Simulated assay, not measured.
Amino acid sequence: MSMNGEYLRLTPAELKRALADAEWALELAEEAQDEQDEDDGGEGRWFSTGQTWNLLAFLLRRAEFPVDLVFGEETLTEEEWGYGKPRYLTPERVRLAADALGRTSYDRLVHGLDPAELTEAEVYPLIWDEPAALDWARDDFGSLVAYVRGAAADGDALVLWID
């Protein structure tokens, strides 16, 4: 079984409801995931970075990205969804992330990175001895950028969790 980075777009009113009723939000996330094609290019309500979440987290931390775009920043509920508590980004933080992504390319994120650093940091999954390993998350990063920009354009919040 693998660990996957998961995202759910919520309007501000839906975020308010989710904070009051996290079970409702989990049901909404599960419905959105069931209804949506995973390969939609990041344009739906639900999005997944698949197993690239830990690499993306490492790269964004390394680049001192201003928003925690993999784990979120505020706890939605004390109940665990998958591998921990879901967290969220307010619409304002989503806009900040979208703006920062406009100045961040995948090539910039991996520039100068030695794959051995990923192995040493135990970045999941441990595949960093492969020649093209650093390119593995390129497409997921591009889709994440599109997803976050879409959420920001619509004024949405994001709920994030590892499942």
Rank of each mutant, 00 (worst) to 15 (best):
E23A: 15
L126C: 04
F141W: 09
E35R: 14
G44E: 11
A132P: 00
T75S: 12
I162L: 12
K16D: 13
A121Y: 06
V159M: 01
N4R: 14
T11P: 10
E80R: 15
V148I: 11
I127K: 09
A98Q: 08
Y83A: 11
E64R: 15
E92I: 00
Y106Q: 06
A63N: 09
D99R: 12
Q36L: 10
V70F: 02
V145S: 06
A151F: 07
V67N: 05
F58E: 04
E27M: 10
F47Y: 14
A22L: 07
R45M: 11
R17N: 11
R149W: 03
A133S: 15
L28F: 11
Y88P: 06
T90E: 11
L160S: 06
P66F: 05
R93V: 00
T77V: 02
L55Q: 14
G82Q: 07
F141H: 03
A152W: 09
S2R: 12
E14C: 05
R108S: 14
S143D: 15
L60Q: 02
Y88A: 01
G82W: 06
R17G: 06
S143W: 15
E64A: 14
R108T: 12
Q51T: 15
V67F: 03
R87C: 13
E31S: 10
K16W: 00
W128T: 08
T119L: 14
D139M: 09
R138V: 05
A29V: 02
W128F: 11
W161M: 05
A157E: 08
L19T: 04
Y83C: 08
R62D: 04
L160I: 12
E79A: 15
Y88V: 10
A152S: 14
N54V: 00
L160E: 03
R108H: 03
D21Y: 07
A137H: 03
L109I: 05
A25K: 09
D163W: 13
E14K: 01
L69R: 03
E73N: 03
W136I: 08
D99I: 00
W136L: 10
G72Y: 04
L8I: 07
Y88T: 07
G84L: 06
A100R: 13
L55E: 12
A25T: 03
L144Y: 07
E74C: 00
R62K: 10
P91Y: 07
R87W: 12
E73K: 05
R149C: 12
R62L: 02
E6V: 04
D40T: 07
D139A: 13
L109P: 02
A20V: 01
A63P: 01
A137Q: 02
A13I: 00
E80D: 14
M3Y: 12
E38G: 13
E79D: 14
T119H: 14
W53N: 03
V110Q: 07
A57D: 15
I127F: 08
T49H: 01
A25C: 15
T90A: 11
E6S: 10
E6M: 10
A97S: 07
W81E: 08
A116R: 15
G142S: 06
V145C: 03
W24D: 08
D139C: 01
F71M: 12
Y106G: 01
P86G: 07
L8E: 06
R103H: 13
V123T: 13
W136E: 04
T119R: 15
A157N: 09
R61G: 00
T52G: 00
I162E: 06
V94S: 11
R9Y: 09
V67H: 06
